[in-house]
Design a binder for these strands. Structure first.
Length: 464
RNA sequence: GUCCCUAUCGUCUAGCCUGGCCCAGGACACCGGCCUUUCACGCCGGCGACGGGGGUUCGAAUCCCCCUGGGGACGCCA
């Protein structure tokens, strides 16, 4: 056990995306590895944009990935009293002040600053005003004047220093009185005892001002570890136009959670030359020290490769369960068809996703085979009739459809027809599956079973 | 624009801290071959990188500086 306390704090304004999932995973892994605590906190201070739907979507995705939290989920929307009290405290201590500048004024100043090539930041207009007019106002945190710069040692990036002249007095409470992100994140992390903040790279710039807030509020400052961003193939920030960015979209596309976890962890982290990691491996091997410092490009092809790996090596019974919804959505019922687990086994090394597997499995469960046009014209020709009849007769004699019996049956068939195996197998494959690509003929025969196989051969003969 | 971060094959990365074992290793993708009853799997092989320039050193992917590229931040979003 250790006293490590980490957290993942998504804002519920949409689904859980790839980047967030990776951040959550890193937090989770480190907590598990060190016997620490992983806290989940929903950052819903922006009431207008936060939705229950998003909260549910995020929770679902976390569950799918297997990232269960030790504490939470906590909701910031339920903690406004605490924040209000802290704002009041800062106001009383003279560490914050009311600002009456309007949105329009600020926008204009910001634009002007940008245009003049200056860093757009609040000019402190209301900082020293002594009156307290009865007008709408926000509350700003007064940048401490006793220090020139703030430095922190990031666990991933190393020492980072920001000069205070780059900072300004940030808004900690909006006109409507609700607190803003930089304030609540500090209060919550402190109150929840978080001692290592692992979050996205995009927060590096916020960190110095948050440290100042920790100090102003009398909290101990935690450690920080900023993980690099995930980019799209064009090196731009990953977004929808690069393809699916929602974790759950990958579930819908037939990906396995262990593939997603494995992919995500290897994007920006490595352990020698190893590529394949189970969750248990990761809990044992993960470390912040081995997290890279630069942004990485999301590579769907590698994810797909991992997915095919996990399908190939996965437990067929479990895969069969996972496959059912995909079959159902194709209108395929497995009720009184062949054994689904056997069907899955025959497809494991030829499907990269559950969707592909469902497509590949469809023929097993249809009532009557429909032939692909090309396959039919090439392999189901009238002159094949004797071959099919021999097939039917010999297979009929086969007491059980198991490997060695099928083999001897085929030896006989090859003898009678004087044809090579391939000349028999391919037409039979079309008769059995409707197409030219499928698991091996013996497997298909076995999975289908004797009755179904024979009736499909008869169907083929009738079609000639 | 300003500030912060960052820089090894197309992509993810090992190596960098503690210079020589690296004319740079692995993986995905791609190409070729083998295997084979189809499709796949698998196996073997190939292609392919230290961004540029200066230093330091007997020696630099590794240390220092500059440039360039890329990303991020600059909100009454988080």
């Amino acid at each position: 056990m250790s006293d490590l306390r980490v957290r993942f704090a998504p804002s519920p304004t949409g689904y859980l995306h790839i980047g967030g999932a990776r951040t959550a995973l890193f937090n989770y892994l480190l907590a598990k590895k060190q016997g620490g605590t992983y806290v989940l906190r929903i950052e819903d201070t922006d009431v207008a944009r936060s939705t229950q739907e998003s909260v549910d979507a995020i929770l679902d995705a976390m569950e799918w990935l297997g990232l269960s939290c030790d504490e939470g989920p906590f909701y910031q929307s339920e903690r406004f009293d605490l924040y209000k009290q802290k704002v009041e405290q800062l106001l009383q201590e003279g560490k914050a002040y009311r600002c009456y500048c309007t949105q329009e004024e600020l926008d204009a100043k910001r634009e002007a600053a940008m245009k003049e090539g200056r860093k757009p930041k609040y000019d402190g207009t209301c900082r020293n005003r002594s009156d307290q007019p009865d007008m709408p106002n926000v509350i700003r945190f007064k940048l401490p004047e006793d220090k020139e710069e703030t430095t922190f040692v990031d666990k991933i990036k190393g020492a980072i220093t920001v000069r205070h002249e780059e900072l300004d007095d940030l808004v900690i409470a909006r006109t409507d009185g609700t607190p803003t992100y930089n304030l609540v994140v500090v209060i919550d992390d402190a109150e929840m005892g978080i001692n290592l903040v692992i979050r996205g790279d995009d927060h590096v710039n916020n960190t110095p001002r948050q440290i100042l807030l920790y100090e102003a509020l009398g909290y101990p400052v935690p450690e920080f570890a900023h993980v690099p961003m995930i980019l799209g193939s064009d090196k731009k920030r990953l977004s929808k136009r690069h393809g699916a960015t929602s974790v759950m979209a990958y579930q819908e596309m037939g990906y396995l959670p262990e593939a997603m976890v494995n992919y995500l962890v290897r994007l920006g982290w490595s352990f020698g030359d190893e590529e394949i990691f189970s969750m248990d491996d990761l809990i044992e091997k993960f470390s912040i020290e081995n997290v890279g410092r630069s942004a990485g490009v999301f590579n769907p092809e590698k994810l797909l490769w991992l997915n095919s790996h996990y399908i190939k090596t996965g437990d067929a019974v479990r895969l069969a369960e996972l496959l059912k919804p995909f079959l159902a959505s194709k209108g395929i019922s497995t009720e009184d068809g062949p054994n689904l687990v056997a069907a899955v086994k025959s497809l494991q090394e030829r499907a990269s996703t559950l969707i592909e597997m469902a497509e590949g499995a469809a023929f097993y469960f249809v009532d009557s085979v429909s032939y692909e046009e090309k396959a039919q014209s090439k392999f189901l020709r009238p002159e094949q009739k004797p071959v099919f009849e021999t097939l039917l007769a010999e297979l009929e004699k086969c007491p059980e459809f198991i490997e060695d019996q099928l083999e001897s049956a085929f030896a006989k068939i090859m003898e009678v027809t004087e044809l090579k195996f391939g000349k028999i197998a391919q037409p039979l494959r079309v008769a059995l599956t409707g197409g030219t690509a499928s698991p091996s003929i013996y497997e298909v025969l076995q999975v289908l079973g004797k009755d179904r196989s024979l009736s499909r051969i008869k169907q083929a003969i009738d079609s000639l």
